[in-house]
Amino acid sequence: MLTVSILIAEAPVTAETAETATASTLATESSASHEEAGPTGNFWLDSNVVNIAVMVVLMVILAKKFNVGAVFTERREKIAAEISSLEAQKKAAQAELDDLNHRTQNLEKEVSSILHEAQQSAESLSNNILAEAQAESQKIVENAKKRVESEQKSALQALEKRLMDDVLNDARHFLLTRLSPEDQHRSVDAFIGSLPTLKQ
């Protein structure tokens, strides 16, 4: 009975050992009831306890031999390192995401700015073209007016000249055909008489 308690005290507290301990407790209780029942029942109980104890001792030896605790520690550290690495990767990914979001926002602003500039430039260009077209059309209209005025003036002058030529030709014809010798003499006398006025 004492041996079993010592074995239980030295064994590492694991799930398996706990179950084993529970089982041994039950066994102890049952053995106690067997003891109460008779000597055959106690033997069977003692042998099981021994077996279990041997098995526990073997397990402890094996655990020490193969350093199971270190394996678990190593495994825990490895998992912790992986978690740490994943967290770092998560942080980097988050930073990259933030950067991309920032860039996207900047791109939107830049696109908006370019569109705004393009609109302004297009409006300015449109206004300039419109102004030039208006100036050109005004110039064309003015030139056309001047040309029309000039042509009207030329036509009027040509008409006046034609009329004057006709009048002069009529006058010439009249003088040539209608002036008598007496008229000619009178015209000569008139000219001679007007000569003294030239001196003044």
Partner: peptide, 14 residues
């Protein structure tokens, strides 16, 4: 000349 006179005297013409 139709009527009247044209006089050329020296370098002058009336």
């Amino acid at each position: 000349i139709l009527g009247g006179l044209v006089v050329k005297l020296s370098d002058q013409i009336i």
